[in-house]
Computed example of a mutant assay.
Amino acid sequence: MKAREPRHKVFVRARMNCAGTWQDITVQNVSKRGLLVRPAEAVPKRGDYVEVRRGALKIVARVVWSAGPLFGARTQDAIDIPALTAARAAPVTAPTEANSPVAERRERPRVEEIAARSQRRAAAFQHMVLLAGIVAVALVIGATLFDVVDRPFAAVRQAMAGNS
């Protein structure tokens, strides 16, 4: 069994975006690739992607469990623990065009959008392969039928050529 990553107890206030809604959170412990979080409002569901911000630090993670007022999230990239604990909390200000979550989403596609686009491409590729297979089978059947139908006509052509 794989050894569990060491946890660091912390009490770090930050902001979290889940499904376009920002809220205050407290990170209660952190490991190299995971966070234990207590949100101020709603706890996200398992499988949801969250964006945690503290100062200039941005962490994107996926919720792997939730129990009561807490949830655990796992990141793909390693978390810079000293930067998380040392960073000053970003002041809560009204979003401007430059720092708004909407403007940022326009810059980088969300994970869900990338996954949906990938699924559409995979489905299109499957349809193209299926269509190519159907065309190949139709060509083989057509060539076989042409050969079957052409044999009697070839015999008639040969017989007519021999009588002339």
Results as ranks from 00 to 15, higher is better:
residue 1 M to V: 05
residue 1 M to Q: 06
residue 1 M to H: 10
residue 3 A to W: 00
residue 3 A to M: 06
residue 4 R to C: 04
residue 5 E to R: 15
residue 5 E to Q: 15
residue 6 P to V: 07
residue 8 H to M: 09
residue 9 K to F: 13
residue 10 V to C: 03
residue 14 A to E: 00
residue 16 M to E: 07
residue 17 N to C: 11
residue 17 N to R: 11
residue 19 A to M: 00
residue 22 W to I: 15
residue 22 W to R: 15
residue 23 Q to W: 01
residue 24 D to V: 08
residue 26 T to I: 12
residue 26 T to H: 03
residue 27 V to N: 02
residue 27 V to P: 01
residue 27 V to A: 11
residue 28 Q to S: 11
residue 29 N to A: 13
residue 29 N to K: 05
residue 30 V to W: 00
residue 34 G to Y: 04
residue 34 G to K: 02
residue 36 L to A: 15
residue 36 L to V: 03
residue 39 P to K: 05
residue 40 A to K: 07
residue 41 E to K: 08
residue 42 A to T: 14
residue 44 P to Q: 10
residue 46 R to N: 08
residue 46 R to C: 06
residue 47 G to D: 09
residue 48 D to K: 05
residue 48 D to P: 00
residue 48 D to L: 01
residue 53 R to N: 09
residue 53 R to H: 08
residue 53 R to S: 14
residue 53 R to C: 14
residue 53 R to V: 12
residue 55 G to L: 07
residue 55 G to V: 01
residue 56 A to N: 09
residue 57 L to S: 02
residue 59 I to W: 06
residue 60 V to S: 14
residue 60 V to L: 07
residue 61 A to Y: 03
residue 62 R to K: 15
residue 62 R to Q: 15
residue 65 W to M: 01
residue 65 W to H: 09
residue 67 A to C: 12
residue 67 A to E: 15
residue 70 L to G: 00
residue 70 L to M: 10
residue 72 G to R: 08
residue 74 R to A: 06
residue 74 R to N: 05
residue 74 R to Q: 10
residue 75 T to W: 01
residue 77 D to Q: 12
residue 79 I to F: 02
residue 81 I to S: 06
residue 81 I to A: 01
residue 83 A to T: 11
residue 84 L to C: 11
residue 90 A to E: 12
residue 91 P to W: 03
residue 94 A to D: 06
residue 95 P to S: 08
residue 95 P to H: 07
residue 96 T to G: 13
residue 97 E to M: 11
residue 102 V to P: 00
residue 102 V to S: 04
residue 102 V to F: 10
residue 103 A to H: 10
residue 103 A to S: 14
residue 104 E to A: 14
residue 105 R to F: 04
residue 108 R to H: 07
residue 108 R to P: 01
residue 111 V to S: 08
residue 111 V to F: 07
residue 111 V to Q: 13
residue 112 E to G: 05
residue 113 E to Q: 15
residue 115 A to F: 05
residue 116 A to P: 00
residue 117 R to L: 14
residue 117 R to S: 11
residue 117 R to E: 09
residue 119 Q to E: 15
residue 120 R to M: 04
residue 121 R to K: 11
residue 121 R to F: 04
residue 122 A to D: 10
residue 123 A to W: 02
residue 124 A to Q: 12
residue 125 F to G: 03
residue 126 Q to W: 03
residue 127 H to P: 01
residue 128 M to T: 04
residue 128 M to F: 08
residue 129 V to L: 14
residue 133 G to F: 03
residue 133 G to V: 05
residue 134 I to W: 05
residue 134 I to T: 04
residue 135 V to D: 00
residue 136 A to F: 03
residue 138 A to T: 13
residue 138 A to F: 07
residue 139 L to P: 00
residue 139 L to N: 08
residue 139 L to G: 07
residue 143 A to S: 08
residue 143 A to L: 13
residue 143 A to Q: 02
residue 144 T to E: 10
residue 145 L to R: 14
residue 146 F to N: 14
residue 146 F to M: 10
residue 147 D to T: 05
residue 148 V to D: 07
residue 148 V to G: 01
residue 148 V to Q: 10
residue 149 V to Y: 11
residue 149 V to E: 14
residue 150 D to L: 13
residue 151 R to F: 06
residue 152 P to I: 04
residue 154 A to Y: 09
residue 155 A to T: 03
residue 156 V to R: 13
residue 157 R to A: 13
residue 158 Q to S: 12
residue 159 A to M: 09
residue 159 A to S: 09
residue 159 A to N: 05
residue 160 M to V: 10
residue 160 M to Q: 09
residue 160 M to A: 08
residue 161 A to W: 04
residue 161 A to R: 15
residue 162 G to E: 09
residue 162 G to N: 10
residue 164 S to R: 11
